[in-house]
Nucleic acid binder design. Structure first.
Length: 402
DNA sequence: TCTGGGGTCCTAGGACCC
DNA sequence: TCTGGGGTCCTAGGACCC
């Protein structure tokens, strides 16, 4: 807990309306020309806005807002789909560029990157402001993406500072000024304080950080539990000991789909489930992983979300076994509450890499084994065919039986 | 107004083991 | 008859982030 040595120099690089920028680069004649641009939506009409251009935001449009509502606020706005592949590709480009500019880079999301540039002041003989601005200009030139940078002695400070930098700017909180910086903010501004906690704080008359600073830690712990209370107490004061850590093993892989119309038949649901299982399976194998836990999730028409998970002794990787387990879980969910389904999802967790040592030989020639070497080899062969000839070359379906 | 899709982390209870 | 305690794994749900 005790801070040691020199204060750290942390930067957060945050892309300005990332999805909007990528959509414009992808389609300069269309999206590129529309001042009022909403990225997101969906042909089914059930979509939400993922990102809106700054001009559209001036009308009150926010991300996660239903597209229909956004269009009422901002009539005439152009709506385009999220260019997912292009976004992932551009994100990688930006990360590679940042890795040339900073010793420690951590991708926090598709459009946010933490840098720890502690020590570079001696190397470059420049202030943190100047470092941040140099990085901003270099990234723009190399990737065509405009970013903003927040900086300070801690991750949370850098993150909050970046809000003051947008768009296309830099904002640094000097060492020692963290508490003053926090004091001007609302509790809702603290990353990790969401709608539920805000409501609960509001019920106790607390909205501004400045007002909440007088509350004893003991009370916060009594209200929100020891862990969360202590966490909030520190965060309000700008204290945050988390490091910028470039190692980030993936912990879950999932795919889900909201249907244009709620699905009601087992046949249609299982067809969709097969697609989802195949999709997460390919991602899993591409990452060189196997998974032990499979989760199936449904959202009912009343928005109630239910899930069912199963952990198998053997770690799995083939589409066939993933689908077989997922189908059992879906049938259990349907049995509990047989209602039409708005959303269906498949998730994988509990990863092992390659061969699990403790299971070596355990399932060879074993009736218990869900997956065989033959099946795994086949699954990978299918992957490489798809890689070479496209997704349509192999149609799943006939290879899966009861 | 009518609510996406990809994630991470936390909690609470039960099973099971020593 | 009155029933420990701690650790780990698993499941289900929920808060939160971009």
């Amino acid at each position: 807990m005790v801070e040691q040595g020199h204060p750290r120099r942390i930067l957060l690089v945050d892309c300005d309306a990332f999805f909007v920028q990528v959509a414009r680069l992808e389609d300069p004649e269309g999206a590129g020309q529309a001042k009022l641009l909403l990225v997101g939506g969906s042909p089914s009409g059930r979509g939400v806005v993922t990102s809106a251009s700054y001009a559209a935001r001036a009308f009150g449009v926010r991300s996660a807002m239903p597209t229909a509502q956004a269009l009422r606020l901002c009539p005439g706005a152009r709506v385009v789909r999220v260019p997912r592949k292009a976004c992932a590709h551009k994100s990688r480009e930006i990360r590679l560029e940042l890795q040339r500019l900073s010793p420690v880079v951590q991708a926090a999301s598709i459009d946010e990157f933490y840098l720890d540039v502690t020590g570079t002041e001696r190397l470059f003989r420049e202030s943190l402001e100047d470092t941040a601005d140099r990085i901003r200009r270099t990234v723009l030139e190399a990737t065509e993406i405009s970013v903003s940078l927040g900086g300070g002695t801690r991750r949370m400070i850098a993150k909050l500072a970046s809000d003051f930098a947008k768009p296309a700017g830099v904002h640094i909180v000097p060492p020692g000024k963290e508490a003053d910086f926090m004091k001007q903010l609302d509790l809702a501004d603290i990353p990790g304080v969401g709608p539920a906690l805000v409501r609960s704080l509001q019920d106790r008359g607390l909205v501004r950080i400045e007002d909440a600073l007088g509350v004893d830690q003991e009370w916060l712990e009594r209200w929100f539990g020891a862990h969360r209370g202590a966490w909030l107490y520190r965060r309000m004061r700008g204290l945050d000991s988390s490091r910028v850590d470039p190692r980030e093993p993936r912990k879950s892989i999932s795919s889900e789909r909201t249907f244009a119309q709620d699905l009601d038949t087992d046949e249609a649901l299982e067809r969709s489930l097969l697609q989802l299982s195949t999709s997460v399976g390919r991602t899993l194998r591409k990452a060189g992983l196997r998974a032990r836990t499979i989760t199936v999730k449904v959202k009912d028409p009343d928005f109630k979300t239910r899930s069912r998970a199963r952990t198998t002794p053997q770690s799995l990787e083939t589409d066939g076994t993933l689908f077989t387990v997922a189908r059992e879980l879906l049938r259990e969910l349907r049995a509990v509450r047989p209602t039409p389904v708005r959303l269906l999802g498949v998730g994988l967790t509990n990863f092992t890499t390659g061969i699990d040592p403790e299971q070596l030989g355990m399932f060879d020639d074993d009736d218990e084994a869900l997956e065989t070497e033959r099946g795994r080899t086949l699954s990978k062969a299918v992957d490489s065919l798809r890689e070479r000839f496209g997704d349509r070359s192999i149609v799943p379906g006939p290879m899966i039986r009861d």
